[in-house]
Computed example of a mutant assay.
Amino acid sequence: MISAVSGGTADAADGAGRPPGVSSPDAGFARDMAVHHQQAVEMSFIVRDRTQDEAVRSLAYDIANTQANQRGMLLGWLDLWGLPKVTPADPPMSWMGGSTDSADSMAGMDMPSTDGHSPDTHAMGGAVTKPGALMPGMATKEELAQLGTLQGRDAEVLYLQLMTDHHKGGVAMALGCAKLCRTPAEQKLAQGMAEAQQSELALMADMLHKRGAAPRP
């Protein structure tokens, strides 16, 4: 992975050795997931200062470091491809093209349920974005502000709920890239993101349960 960012053109191009186009799924995923990851890092730093619970602080630390590193890789690929990091002509998620392919892929990956029911893979694969949020799973400015006002258990619960939503959106996006992207190194990174965040979804569901709470509907 690192070689692709630092100049390994074979890993950072499609099977024919061509860099992705500006509106390709490869470029769109890199741009969107970099933004998506940045908010996860921000939320994790917020909760770190709002609780002394070691389990939550450890999870937040892991998420912040992992996603900051992955964000650097995604932005590095865009630089390597000579592509802009912001494209006003291409709205967020437009690279998925309204496709349900990511939902179909997710359905086959045994997505862990976080509320005792089967996950709504079509809703996630369809890239549902709530009002006031930029992309699927992302928190609104009001939710981030609320997190910054809480302490202790209340901060822990809201963080875990927000991050659960965030991961669900991230998994749908990552599976979309694994299906649609043509850069092998990026496909591999996206698949790894999906699998790691699925594991963290199960962990966060258990952490919420221990605090007498549950993921938001």
Rank of each mutant, 00 (worst) to 15 (best):
Q161W: 05
D11I: 05
T183L: 01
L180H: 15
P215A: 03
L203T: 15
P119G: 09
L75C: 12
P112F: 06
A13C: 11
V22L: 05
V171Y: 03
Q161D: 08
L189S: 09
Q39D: 06
A123L: 13
A139F: 01
V5R: 11
G76H: 10
L134E: 02
A202F: 07
A202Y: 03
A133V: 04
L160D: 01
P92T: 04
S99K: 00
C177R: 03
M138L: 05
D32R: 00
Q52H: 12
G98A: 10
A4Q: 10
H209I: 03
G15N: 06
G148S: 15
L160C: 03
V157I: 15
S105D: 13
A194E: 06
M138Y: 02
P88S: 12
F29P: 07
L134D: 01
L144K: 09
D110R: 13
R18C: 04
G76M: 10
D11S: 14
L162C: 08
P25I: 04
A178R: 07
K130C: 01
P88Q: 14
V35Y: 00
D120M: 04
K130V: 06
L175I: 00
P19W: 07
S23V: 13
A194W: 01
C181P: 14
D206P: 02
Q39K: 07
D62G: 12
D26E: 06
D11N: 10
K179F: 00
D49K: 14
E143F: 10
Q151C: 01
C181M: 14
A133G: 10
L208R: 07
P215W: 02
D110K: 10
Q198P: 06
S94C: 03
P184K: 05
Q151K: 11
V128R: 03
T183W: 01
S6V: 05
G7F: 02
Y159C: 09
R18A: 13
A60N: 11
L83H: 09
A194K: 03
A55C: 04
T129S: 01
W81I: 12
G152K: 10
D49C: 07
A27Y: 10
T164K: 08
A16N: 03
G98R: 03
D165G: 14
A27R: 10
D49G: 15
P131N: 04
D14T: 10
M43Y: 05
K85W: 11
G192I: 05
D53A: 13
Y61V: 14
N65H: 14
M163K: 11
L175D: 02
M93H: 03
D62T: 14
S113K: 09
Q38L: 15
R48K: 08
P136C: 01
G169T: 01
G98H: 07
G126V: 00
T66R: 08
Q151G: 02
M173E: 02
V86E: 15
A185E: 13
K210S: 15
